[in-house]
């Protein structure tokens, strides 16, 4: 009888531990910088910009970046539904920086270029021709239409908005999809 109960308890504990192990494994996958997004979601573009000699990279710790950039012109923050995090927008002269604070860490969640004073490391910026974007960033973007060109690597995205064949907006953005 005692052996039976001991066996039962052992089985249940093992069951719980297995669940924990699975969760840990999956968490590790989440932490891999989003680069494991599958072969179809690889890109050779760089997911950072240099602004006032500060390198701003998607997914990087926001504290150091914000400190290096200095005081923004203004900020605005909005919470995610259900209190799961806050997104803050820091507005500088030529770009907007978005950070995501999940209560433990604050990371760079997005960068929106506001004018042609800042260019992508590939050399294109607002006003560039769409053909130049394809030439500089690669001719096989993840998405391409008359209104936009997107390059994706894992959860990181570089989105060019187009108007009349020219770049009208540039945004770097983290989009986490986990299915």
């Amino acid at each position: 009888m005692k052996k039976f109960l001991a066996l039962l308890l052992c089985l249940m504990m093992a069951f719980c531990l297995v669940a924990c192990e699975n969760k840990k494994n999956n968490n590790n996958n989440d932490d891999d910088d989003g680069e494991g997004g599958g072969a179809s979601k690889k890109s050779s573009v760089s997911f950072y910009v240099n602004y006032n000699s500060v390198k701003i990279e998607l997914g990087a710790d926001a504290k150091a970046v914000l400190s290096a950039l200095g005081t923004p012109k203004r900020t605005d923050d909005q919470g995610e539904c259900g209190g799961l995090g806050r997104v803050t927008k820091y507005v500088y002269a030529s770009l907007e920086l978005f950070t995501l604070n999940n209560g433990k860490t604050e990371t760079v969640d997005g960068i929106k270029l506001l004018d042609d004073a800042v260019k992508c490391p590939e050399g294109v910026g607002i006003g560039s021709a769409s053909a130049d974007v394809l030439k500089a960033c690669g001719s096989n973007p993840t998405n391409k239409s008359d209104t936009g060109i997107t390059y994706t690597s894992g959860s990181k995205n570089l989105i060019f908005s187009l108007r009349d064949g020219a770049v009208s907006g540039i945004e770097y953005k983290v989009i986490s999809t986990k299915k």
């Binding site: 203004r74 605005d76 927008k89 978005f98 997005g110 929106k112 993840t142 998405n143 936009g148 997107t150 994706t152 995205n157 989105i159 908005s161 907006g169 945004e171 953005k173 989009i175």
Partner: peptide, 10 residues
């Protein structure tokens, strides 16, 4: 802040 939202991939 009444500025527009962020761009979407698709």
């Amino acid at each position: 802040d009444f500025s527009e939202g962020r761009a979407e991939v698709d």
